[in-house]
Simulated assay, not measured.
Amino acid sequence: MWVLGMLGLALSCRGAGAFLVHVASSCPLAANGSALAFGFTLVFNKNPLVCYEPDARRFAPCDWGLLRPYATVLAAILNNGTAWVQRAEARRRACRDLVPRFWSSTALRRTPPQIRIVSVPLPNTPDAVLLTCRVWGFYPAEVTVLWRHNGDVVATGDNAKLLPNGDWTYQTQVTLTVTAKVGDTFTCAVQHASLDRPLCEDWGPGLSPGLMVKVVAAAVVMTVGLVVFAAGTFSYCRQAPGEGQAGGTPVWHVGDVAPT
């Protein structure tokens, strides 16, 4: 790296002021995951200065401005030895060898979505509800979201905004304003490459899912209690009289006259 340090020192002495020199390598991929090319560049203040030519295995100046003379000198210095050429070739091999693993763990992976319906009653509008179908955690980004009312498609998410989560997954949401009636069923259906069949969630007017779970749990507990009580009562009624109930030692009280 002394070469880059000398370059920075020379340019700073010529009034270049603050400078930043770094090495940038690139490995662009095709749609099928194969490597299209390889780039290895020495950059000065975001300006490509010297570029590596993989076919010729040599460095060449790639600046055509005021820094062209410095780029020419630097390219000659890098080509004079083998250290920088070996470094560039090592990056090139890494690009070739890591592409299949990177492609299979990113672009080819399938992460299924999660789904949830959020309902919000609309003020000043009787029985009107805003339904939001939230879909998140899926990859790849292509997804189809449909709203169905009693089985019929009433809305699609073709214009829904797709947002990245920052962890190589995506999220989206599709809203639907409805006037809910007893017996209606609104279904959010999600189609994605990771799913064998659409992922669906239903919503209908009535108890919320959380309250419904509590009601069902209470009913189950009550039913079990009644069964246990009935079984205990039946077992008690069938129990045979114990010894001492039909006969046994009499119990005398004060004032009783014992038989002679």
Rank of each mutant, 00 (worst) to 15 (best):
V23K: 04
P250T: 15
D97P: 07
P259K: 11
P54S: 03
P126M: 07
M222Q: 05
A31V: 05
R109E: 06
T223S: 15
T260K: 12
L9M: 15
V178S: 00
F59C: 05
P48C: 07
K46I: 06
D97I: 14
P113N: 05
G81M: 03
V99I: 15
L66H: 10
T185F: 08
R109F: 07
R134L: 06
N124H: 13
V43K: 06
G204P: 01
T82W: 07
V254D: 14
M212D: 12
A16K: 06
T106A: 05
W136T: 06
L122R: 13
T125I: 13
E243S: 11
Y236G: 06
P69Y: 02
A18D: 15
A10P: 03
T144P: 03
H192P: 03
S194G: 08
A83T: 15
F38I: 05
S34Q: 12
L42G: 01
C62Y: 05
G8L: 04
D196M: 06
A37C: 11
A83R: 11
A94M: 11
Q173V: 00
F19L: 12
L36C: 08
F186T: 00
V215E: 11
V43W: 02
T185R: 08
A128P: 02
T169I: 04
N79Q: 05
T179C: 02
W2N: 15
A240L: 14
P121N: 13
R57A: 07
L78C: 09
A230W: 04
Y52S: 00
L66I: 10
G247D: 14
A90I: 07
V23M: 11
R14N: 07
E89F: 08
V21C: 10
C27Y: 06
K181H: 13
R109I: 10
G33K: 01
A193S: 14
R58I: 08
W64P: 07
L211P: 03
P164R: 03
H22D: 14
C188T: 02
Q86H: 12
P112H: 09
C200R: 10
T185Q: 10
P61N: 10
D97C: 12
